[in-house]
Design a protein around this nucleic acid. Structure first.
Lengths: 120, 120
DNA sequence: GGCATAGTACAATACATCTTGTACAAAAGA
DNA sequence: TCTTTTGTACAAGATGTATTGTACTATGCC
């Protein structure tokens, strides 16, 4: 309600993004956001990079769909983004996540790595 | 398809339950199953008990809804159940889960405990 | 057998989600 | 300014989910 209003207004203004309040970040939202293969792959790749990544650093789906998934990740509290010129950069909110849900991200990413094929 | 056929047939026969093959248990399915508050509460409680728990050991929603959520958990690979007389008992598949996705369940449950109010 | 109890099946509702197509806005460069 | 690039907004369709109500099956006990 209030959140939605703010989000809509800010996003219509373009180049201004809404983020959830710290107390509105839930473990359910995080887990739901991570339960999609595309998004989990995004998060996994972001976690491997110290620096911010360009919006389309992964070529795994359509542009519109990437926008959608990044929005889900952002509204769940997992990522932050910023525009620089025409480009958009994205990064993981490790600080907040590790503080709110210690061990969660490491547990998920660790299990994911243990599952995946060994990388070269 | 094949799975659905088997599942339907077995469940129609009643008192016979279908479980996913080991290779069909995915981290996405696990995370999706855990992303619901009711189910996460179920799993958290099961994790605290060494022994099997009766079907309705948690009084948090309707009977039919419990059946639904236990089915989701079972088909995701998280739990096993068994009938004894009229009663149904449920337990967590810690062995399989820790082997397939090491650190996942501990990470989620640890984060959940860190989030929750301290218990007496 | 008759009856109560435990859990399921099924249908219906309401709602969220993923994906794609079309159209648009904002910035950069000529 | 005109054009290209980058990402969004919006709508539509297909699909999945959470919940409840009604009816049913299976078991145990009298």
């Amino acid at each position: 309600m209030t959140n939605e209003t703010i989000a809509t207004a800010a996003e219509t203004a373009h180049r201004e993004l809404w983020y959830p309040e710290r107390e509105d970040i839930t473990i359910y939202g995080i887990l739901a956001a991570l339960s999609d293969p595309t998004r989990l792959e995004i998060v996994r790749t972001l976690a491997r990079h110290e620096e911010r990544c360009p919006f389309d650093f992964l070529d795994i789906t359509s542009k519109q769909n990437l926008t959608h998934h990044f929005k889900v990740l952002r509204e769940a509290g997992l990522i932050k983004s910023r525009y620089e010129g025409r480009k958009k950069f994205v990064w993981l909110r490790r600080d907040v996540l590790d503080e709110l849900f210690p061990g969660l991200l490491d547990g998920v990413l660790g299990a994911l790595d243990a599952t995946s094929e060994p990388r070269p």
